[in-house]
């Protein structure tokens, strides 16, 4: 337990030393919320913006930080080094995932704070349901990150795959450009991103419009389970 705590603290410190997760995961979503808040003319629009922008943090950690760090730990033989100690290298993996979850949730809370205290957002839906939905989206996106870490042969390849997934999802899933203003052909294309369904789910919960969410919910649960199983099956320590 002590080792887990030390590794968890180390992961947080390392991320602040390196800054990219902090910029993409914390600062960027807060700034974006501050911008989108200016364009929101109603409380509904504020709620929708919040629900979409709240997912940027979990994408930054799930699609960038998680696969990049695990690939690097494998390539730098950090995982191998823990194999010749009394603990399992799994603890380092858990510590990193815990750090990712912490950063994601902090990011969501920060975006909430900007919307609430900056623009007086009144949250319409059930906060508990929103948190449950958020945790599901977080789990699904991190499972995708784990698959990248499991299947990618090197740190460089991981960087390429991560960027190829992160930027389209970031731009097209509705996290930055609202899904509603996209042309309908684009809407049907971007539906292949699990994040699109994640944002749809969170927007539905935020507005307390819970009908028609079953499909998105199913996609997310399946993504989380299937990706997790595949990544566990193919994960290599070296």
């Amino acid at each position: 337990m002590n080792t887990f705590w030390l590794l968890y603290k180390a992961e947080i410190k390392l991320s602040f030393r390196e800054m990219s997760s902090v910029i993409f995961g914390l600062i960027l979503p807060a700034v974006l919320m501050a911008l989108m808040g200016m364009f929101a003319y109603s409380n509904e629009e504020l709620n929708l913006s919040f629900a979409a922008i709240a997912t940027i943090g979990l994408c930054a950690t799930g699609l960038m930080s998680l696969p990049l760090s695990l690939s690097s730990y494998r390539e730098q033989k950090v995982l191998k080094r823990y194999k010749v100690t009394p603990i399992s290298p799994m603890i380092l993996l858990f510590a990193h995932v815990s750090y990712c979850f912490s950063l994601s949730i902090s990011s969501m809370l920060m975006v909430f704070a900007v919307a609430k205290f900056g623009y007086g957002m009144n949250f319409i839906g059930s906060p508990l349901k929103f948190i449950a939905g958020y945790l599901l989206v977080m789990a699904a996106i991190h499972s995708i990150g784990l698959i990248i870490a499991s299947l990618s042969p090197s740190e460089k390849t991981t960087g390429a795959i991560s960027s190829a997934l992160y930027f389209p999802m970031f731009l097209l899933s509705g996290a930055t450009i609202p899904f509603e203003i996209m042309p309908s052909f684009l809407q049907s294309i971007v539906k292949i991103f699990p994040l699109t369904h994640g944002i749809e789910l969170l927007k539905g919960i935020a507005l307390n419009q819970l009908a028609n969410l079953t499909f998105s919910l199913t996609v997310l649960i399946l993504t989380a389970i299937v990706c997790l199983i595949i990544s566990i099956k193919f994960f290599k320590w070296e």
């Binding site: 390196e18 730098q76 033989k77 950090v78």
Partner: peptide, 10 residues
């Protein structure tokens, strides 16, 4: 081991 296997920045 031959390689210094540590998390970068530690």
């Amino acid at each position: 081991f031959q390689e210094n296997a540590f998390q970068k920045g530690l």
